[in-house]
Amino acid sequence: MSEYRERLWPSPWIIAIAALAIPASLLTFAAIDLVVGALTGIVLFSGVIALATISAPTIDVSGGMLRAGKARVPLAFVGETELARGVEARHARGPGLDARAYLVIRGDIDPVVRIEIVDPQDPTPYWLVSTRRPEALRAALDAARAHSA
């Protein structure tokens, strides 16, 4: 049973930006053939949307594990969490970022949760994870850690 699960789907504005491939292709291929331009635009749009959807990472807290993207860590090695939004989130993703941190961030999702890793064998000091529901993720981590302790 999953205590928390979230898929970081692309934001609607990503779809709108990808749709710009259609008129751009029409303009590029207008001198050759409008049908080729339209088909090229539709293929590019579909490819961008498919790639953004397929590559959307999942965050999962269940079975005594935290999974974010392709990585996982036992909840026994999860320490304190910090939530950040707006300017604080930009700082956490930019100048405040430790190069050793594990990242599962989406530029189109503002809130991030910094999850401390307390495994002495792991050189990763923390995970920085984008989430649309930072309070729910923090609550699930706290509850799962309390349950496993």
Rank of each mutant, 00 (worst) to 15 (best):
I105K: 09
L97S: 03
L103N: 01
P111C: 12
H91T: 14
D98W: 07
R114G: 02
G94C: 06
H91L: 14
W127R: 10
K70P: 09
E82W: 15
R114H: 10
F77C: 07
R85L: 03
P123A: 01
E82M: 08
A89Y: 11
A101N: 07
L83W: 14
L128H: 04
A99W: 14
V112H: 12
A99T: 15
V113C: 10
G96R: 15
G94E: 07
P95K: 12
V78M: 01
Y126F: 14
D122Y: 09
R114K: 14
V113K: 15
I109G: 01
L103Q: 03
A101W: 10
V112R: 12
A89C: 03
E80R: 12
P123H: 03
Y102R: 15
I115W: 13
I115K: 07
G69A: 05
P125S: 00
E82N: 04
V104A: 06
P111G: 14
A76P: 01
A76C: 07
A99Q: 14
E80M: 09
P123T: 12
D110C: 09
D119T: 12
Y126D: 02
P111H: 05
I115F: 13
R90D: 13
V129K: 10
V73D: 04
A71R: 15
D119N: 08
P125G: 00
P120Y: 05
V78L: 00
V118K: 11
H91E: 15
V73C: 03
V87M: 12
E82G: 02
P120G: 02
V73M: 06
E116F: 15
P123D: 08
P125H: 00
V118R: 12
R90S: 13
D98P: 05
G69E: 02
G86N: 09
